[in-house]
């Protein structure tokens, strides 16, 4: 790297961190972790989620019974899937409704591969979504500017503010009003979905944003919704909108 280019890069990095410090008060959950866990996430040779990414890369190239692999249609994922995870949930013309990334992968399986949909939180689905999400690392979250998503986002926003469960708490009570404070030793993050799917140390496994939300709902002493409930999609859409412009850091590590 020439001196000039290095200077330019340093300037850009400096400008970015300056902008961060100045304007945007939003923080990824990554920033609430101690240095040891940040290092675990940053090192691809140490981040346990990369085991799933590797399995996802293999699944990407694997032919379904009907003959086609993901790669046969989408080619090299590092090019074709760049930025894709950063803009889901999105409206699918094929499905005639909004779907999230897992829904999109399963749609391809059922319609384009004549294969069965992968179960929520199955290793197969997590591996493929981790592999696809990795291709958006560093990309800004970019929810589609699509009026067909407005209702869903509004529903999500309402859910986020609604008090529920035996504790009569809302998501906002923790993630807006008390973010940065401690809860049972854990720092309450702002709740941005930048790193999904995540390897959560508590699970000792990879899990989706739905599973993470489910844990919060259980924490609120509310009855958790089933994995196919529309509430998750609404919250996911709202959270992605709320995190618009933040950099993706999937697959993340979280405590």
């Amino acid at each position: 790297m020439t001196g000039l280019r290095l200077a330019a890069v340093l300037l850009a990095v400096f400008a970015a961190s300056f902008a961060l410090a100045q304007g945007d008060p939003r923080r990824s959950g990554y920033r609430e972790m101690g240095p040891a866990l940040q290092k675990m996430q940053d090192d691809d040779a140490a981040n346990p989620a990369m085991l799933f990414v590797q399995a996802g890369a293999a699944a990407w190239a694997e032919k379904a019974a009907a003959g086609k692999s993901c790669a046969d249609c989408h080619g090299d994922a590092t090019a074709s899937m760049k930025g894709v995870a950063a803009r889901y949930p999105a409206f699918s013309a094929e499905a005639g409704k909004p779907i999230d990334l897992e829904g999109r992968i399963n749609l391809c399986r059922t319609t384009h591969q004549q294969a069965e949909a992968l179960a929520p939180e199955s290793d197969g689905l997590l591996a493929l979504s981790a592999y696809v999400a990795l291709q958006s690392r560093g990309q800004p979250i970019a929810p589609p500017d699509d009026a067909r998503l407005s209702n869903l986002r509004a529903e999500g926003a309402e859910l986020y503010k609604r008090r529920q469960g035996q504790l009569n708490l809302s998501c906002a009570n923790c993630h807006d009003d008390h973010a940065g404070r401690k809860l049972a030793g854990a720092t309450i993050p702002q709740g941005h979905p930048t790193g999904y799917p995540i390897y959560r140390l508590e699970w000792q496994a990879l899990g989706s944003l739905k599973r993470r939300l489910r844990n919060c709902v259980i924490g609120m002493r509310a009855e958790p919704w089933s994995y196919d409930a529309a509430d998750y999609l609404a919250l996911e859409s709202f959270l992605m909108q709320r995190a618009k412009g933040m950099a993706m850091d999937a697959p993340g590590v979280r405590p």
Binding site: A184, G185, L201, E202, N215, C216, G219
Partner: peptide, 9 residues
């Protein structure tokens, strides 16, 4: 060792 919050059953 701190205790995780919002964990699942």
């Amino acid at each position: 060792v701190t205790i995780a919050a919002c964990i699942e059953d």
